[in-house]
Design a protein around this nucleic acid. Structure first.
Lengths: 343, 343
DNA sequence: GTTAGCACTCACATCTGACGAGTGCTATTT
DNA sequence: AAATAGCACTCGTCAGATGTGAGTGCTAAC
């Protein structure tokens, strides 16, 4: 939406948003005039503020209080006003060193990342590990590694792989396993992992499988191999939400916590952002969390060496320090991508 | 501690504890007399209550309020008064069916269990997956499964195993891997997994490893193989804490959440309970959580098919529904043990 | 030993009025 | 015409005053 606002109005709006972000108190006309050393009197500011209110950018909680920004105002602020801070040397150091100290496993790195995000932003850090259920199936292989023990290796078209140790009831000969692999590799070409799984489940109940013992056993093992564990998701710093004065009352908070306990909800929320590159910002109702009143979300995606995509970001109040959090999220996403592609 | 209390005093104490658990309000003498249909007047009850207060079992928040039980009273209640409820048919059904629907992986089962615990108790459910770092090392084996890809299988004396796929810089021949395995199996006999890891790290920096390239490479791979991921811990139902009126103020709650965010703290807390069998109960300061004011913990341990031990339980306010939660925790631990030993 | 009665305490809710931050309007200045 | 000073008005907040009632401890009677 294009806003035609005079330079002065924009400046005042910016001042109000930033003041409110800093203090969480409705800001009055004189505060703006004073704190921003403008050459304007409070009365003038008042007139401008009345305008802004009319345009839906400000509201007053009651007649004799200052004004607070609406979601629309935050949107406008983020889109055209905010002066992004640089990520400080120290913050960069923290991001990188925390990642490194986590050791190898991707889980470790991501977990540490969510903690870092939370620490640097003072809000809630969140990271969703890449999942490859949507990737296209490329190759599966079964390797016998002991009595009744099979290793299944599943490769996606993007090169991501998942391996799984399977205990079976019977012992399988290596040749049989190879035949099984060939069968699957032929049949499942071009499907996504999710589709492969569905197809296998379907065939397991089919007529043919009921009479073909070999097939039936093969399917049973394959099913285990393509079973994908639920999306890994790391949330850190939930307690920091309690620092925010707007959530200091118990009822509000409970809503929010309950919402977040459904991690599925978060995944859903974040996977929406997967498609776009760069930092994405969702303000208040834009998050489409039902209980979202007053919640904002800043995310960016990262990529792994195998080109799978994950999301990381920060959840905080609408009244969030956008100018510093946006660059942090951006930088962190870049660093995580870099780090994961090195592995 | 042996308490000599008349039957009447015990009855009254029980009534007070249960009333307080139900209402979270200080209970007065008349409430006891009325609600428990005793043949006593409130005045008599008052005398008894005065006694109980003297013995350190009750306190009054202020002169003209009812009385509330002290930790000591809860302890006494749990030890000798509480009438444990039966686990209802429906609850049993829920526990079992939730476990089963979670599918195979242990993680899945345990996660679902923590959720069930939370649902049934209406407090916070918590499960710590068994870790085998304390187990004794028995056997390690490296299998080459592809170019620069090795599968390491680590077996503990209790039969628990961990497998890990390792990407290496160089390609290793199968014979070399076998030699490496033999070397380790010989040297590490009788040590715990933790000790094995320490020994390997130590040797990596030793003189010998610096000049013996083969050894150095072997150690590097072994180190990855015995690296154990942090204890898995599942916490569910954190939001339910907010239901408890005693935590409805923001400051209290923040403390608690911050305490729980250090999952390490929880692990430490729970691993203390590992040694004893059966249901363990920690009331208030007995939990030795510094911020524990008003927190109680009911846990029990469970065992897997490989004899490793995990913990599960419920965290709630001291003012917890012991009579129903204790049996639930007990039953759940039994069921999880049974389920995991079937796998 | 039990109970009724009574004076006493104290948290809590409700009311009140003073205060002040902030507004909108209007008349005045630039 | 835009900016400002002045002023009356609104309304939330805070502090003190007051009443209410639940609950107690004590004493005297049963």
């Amino acid at each position: 939406m294009v806003m035609e606002l005079s330079a002065r109005s924009r400046q005042i709006l910016e001042a109000i948003v930033e003041d409110y972000i800093a203090t969480a108190e409705p800001v009055g006309s004189s505060a703006v005039a004073r704190r921003h050393a403008m050459t304007l009197s409070s009365a003038t500011v008042r007139n401008v503020m009345a305008n802004l209110e009319e345009m839906g950018l400000l509201t007053s909680p009651h007649t004799s209080a200052g004004r607070i920004p609406t979601e629309k105002a935050y949107r406008f602020y983020v889109d055209s006003l905010v002066a992004l801070r640089q990520v400080s040397r120290d913050e960069k150091r923290q991001i990188v060193s925390h990642c490194r100290q986590a050791g190898i496993g991707m889980s470790g790195i991501l977990k540490e990342t969510s903690r870092t995000l939370s620490q640097l932003s003072n809000y809630m850090g969140i990271v969703v590990a890449p999942s490859f259920t949507a990737d296209v199936f490329r190759h599966i292989e079964f390797i016998r590694i002991g009595h009744c023990k099979i290793l299944a290796i599943l490769v996606s078209s993007k090169g991501a792989l998942q391996n799984r140790l399977i205990d079976t009831d019977d012992d399988y000969a290596s040749e049989e396993l190879i035949r099984m692999g060939n069968y699957l590799n032929e049949r499942m070409q071009g499907l996504t992992i999710t589709q492969v799984r569905e197809l296998i489940l379907e065939e397991m109940t089919s007529e043919k499988a009921r009479y073909d013992q070999l097939l039936s056993r093969a399917l049973k093992i394959s099913e285990q191999a393509v079973r994908v564990e639920g999306d890994e998701i790391f949330v850190e710093g939930q307690a920091r939400i309690l620092d925010q004065p707007e959530f200091s009352d118990a009822g509000r908070m409970k809503e929010i916590y309950q919402a977040f306990e459904q991690k599925g909800l978060l995944v859903q929320l974040l996977s929406r952002c997967m498609t776009a590159e760069g930092v994405q910002i969702y303000i208040g109702s834009e998050t489409s969390l039902s209980q979202s009143a007053g919640i904002s979300l800043i995310t960016s995606r990262f990529v792994t060496s195998s080109n799978t995509i994950g999301m990381l970001g920060v959840i905080g109040p609408t009244r969030m320090g956008y100018s510093s959090v946006i660059p942090i999220v951006d930088y962190t996403a870049r660093m995580v991508s870099k780090l994961l592609s090195e592995v």
